[in-house]
Design a protein around this nucleic acid. Structure first.
Lengths: 215, 215
DNA sequence: ACTAACTTGCACACACCTGTGCAAGTTAGT
DNA sequence: ACTAACTTGCACAGGTGTGTGCAAGTTAGT
């Protein structure tokens, strides 16, 4: 079994590769069904179930690693999202999330079940706070809905974003379309009419003519 | 075991009560986690696991019964929802769903997993078609978003409705608030600004001053 | 080409869930 | 109060999943 300890001859290259393969497979499989067996993961990774236990002590340890990575990527993607206009900010958060659909989906799927909830909530903190802040600003500016608590609006925006990500995949939308939609619907839930939302999105897209790496 | 067959002395009253208790417990438990064991259901119902098999031949049969009932209630709730104005219609569908939160949540939860998907899709057909029709009309009328397929909008509206139901419970909203919100957010996703949505909702609430049984 | 690192396959113990059979108990209806 | 209807508790078979140990095989690095 691969060891993280110091050795006379140290780690082997393919061990690292296999570790990555396992994580990739887990992300893929758990996105479909968070309760899939390690056997399914192993098969997807092209390894034996036994081999997984060479890299991760337990199922939960594998899960934890996935969450940490996902959280990190999302944090990174959100790090350089700043805009004085809360509407633009919110839209940009949506766009950033679309860039990390896979990660987001894994987290969202896993969020439902099990005792990992704490870890997951933690991983999604950056998204939460970013959205919440934007909602507060948007309400203050008179654009967003003020008929319910900003907290609630933020959560609804998050849920809507997840739903859009699903729908984007299901309806097989273009990268561009999906980006637009995830931004637009977030703004809709926040309170804008769809035309106003589209206007904000247009503004963003024209200002960043060529840009954006996709996952 | 209780028998659905004809007998010299026929069914006993408490057997029926227990059957209902099991179904109620199942609804409660499966709403939290659709993969809960029958043991959990039995405990919740205050019966033994063995007793469940007196009323239902298998886990799936219990599930099926739940789905049928939920579908029936939802259909019934939607049966008298008609309005020439698609905006009002969509809002009313939302309100009707709020009246059947429990049922809707069970179906939505169960929809994710397992081979029951067909049955569930079937049970939710009335909601689907009602929403889809309203969306089409709203787009035609120029109120709703036309930037993506009506199909997609309909699905997003449904997902948003579910999210609102959750949030309403989580944030412990009033019946009245929840009703308003589920209507309003549906309209938001469909494309209205939150003020316009509120306006539509106001119109509905003032026209139906005292009304509506809740579940 | 030699050795340590890594993978595999099989075996196992343990846990949890479903579905069934049966004897013994309790409860509803007449 | 008597009997059938119903529940209970236990035991069992069969399924699936996790986590571990170990011998035998393959592969990477020196």
């Amino acid at each position: 079994m691969p060891d993280t300890l110091n050795h006379p001859r140290a780690l082997r290259k393919d061990a690292l590769e296999n570790r990555e393969a396992i994580l990739a497979a887990a992300a893929l499989v758990f996105r479909r069904d968070p309760e899939s067996s390690l056997d399914a993961v192993a098969t997807e990774a092209g390894l034996s179930r036994r081999a997984i236990y060479g890299h991760f002590a337990s199922r939960d340890e594998l899960l934890a690693e996935l969450l940490v990575r996902g959280g990190a990527r999302i944090s990174a993607a959100l790090a350089d999202v700043h805009d004085p206009d809360p509407r633009v900010h919110l839209a940009l958060v949506g766009a950033a999330m679309w860039g990390e659909v896979q990660q987001v989906r894994v987290l969202a799927q896993l969020a439902v079940h099990g005792p990992l909830e704490k870890t997951i909530a933690e991983a999604l903190v950056p998204v939460r706070s970013s959205v919440r802040q934007a909602v507060r600003g948007g309400v203050a500016g008179g654009w967003f809905r003020s008929d319910i608590a900003a907290e609630s609006v933020a959560r609804l925006v998050e849920d809507a974003a997840i739903a859009v990500l699903d729908e984007a995949v299901r309806a097989d939308l273009t990268e561009a379309e999906a980006r637009r939609l995830v931004m637009s619907v977030g703004l809709s839930v926040a309170g804008l009419s769809w035309q106003d939302a589209a206007h904000v999105v247009d503004g963003i897209e024209s200002s960043t003519v060529t840009e954006g790496p996709h996952a």
